[in-house]
Amino acid sequence: MTPLLEASRVSVHFPVGGGWLSRGRRVVRAVDDVSLSVARGETLALVGESGCGKSTLGRALLRLVEPTSGEVRFDGADISRLDGAALRQLRRRMQIVFQDPYSSLDPRMTVRDIVGEGLVIHGLARGAALDAQVAPLLERVGLPRDAMGRRPHAFSGGQRQRIGIARALALSPELIVCDEPTSALDVSVQAQVLNLLVELQRELGLAYLFISHDLKVVEHLAHRVAVMYLGRIVERASAEALFARRRHPYSDALLSAVPVPDPRAKRRRLTVAGEPPSPLSPPSGCAFHPRCPRAQPGRCDVEVPALSDEEHAVACFFPA
């Protein structure tokens, strides 16, 4: 079966403007040669720390930013060259929920207009018919009936995120990119929103590309996980396999750094030395080698390891 979404060798490079003399000379490789796929009804989590390129990749797959190279296929069709009406049609099938439920909702619009905007743009409903479509969406995401005529400021963070989810659902998409949808929320509210996402997936057969830095959330939600570091996928596996055993030293460090809410837990903390390098001047060879406890000089600082062609894939010369 063809995957719903398939990206092969996608890169997103941003030119960095210094002065006019240096224009176009330097690029940030925000996403570098990334391949992945998402099946129908599946959740693929993209995990990594700030600046690893996970959000840029998510946006590139929706063509909210243009990939510099590579191919993205949705339901078998190459979407890299679509434009105009064809791209708009495609956008009905893939939606996004953003991290910040405050800045991602227009404060001047009512909830009806926010949730119904897509339906109006696509000419699917207006007037009373629009209300008839928006009302069940609000109910489905657990918002009160009277939410329709109110504006975002009247709602808490968790409720706003439900509005964002209702907006994403309005056009009956097959894929939703969730970009850190719960990281601005308190844990008790986060749990409510995560449960909602799981229920919706089960009922509607949605696929999620779930972008997150929170490994506890990812473990709970994801079927498969891809770990990113400085623009590349360094490890990719089923959630079961990855949480049972990390093959890449960075994944291992990342997981061991997560504070566990159990004071009796014996820590096996692998602090990695230093900080992530700047994507402006990435290290030679494997981007993780300056911080890696397993790095071997002459190899890791020279060659870039490719992501292996295995079920539990890893981009490392000396994987566990």
């Binding site: 008790s188 995560l194 799981v198 506890k216 709970h220």
Partner: peptide, 14 residues
């Protein structure tokens, strides 16, 4: 309400 570590799935179902 904190997603538990290593214990949140029953045979793949969330």
């Amino acid at each position: 309400s904190i997603p538990p570590v290593g214990a949140s799935r029953d045979g793949g179902a969330r």
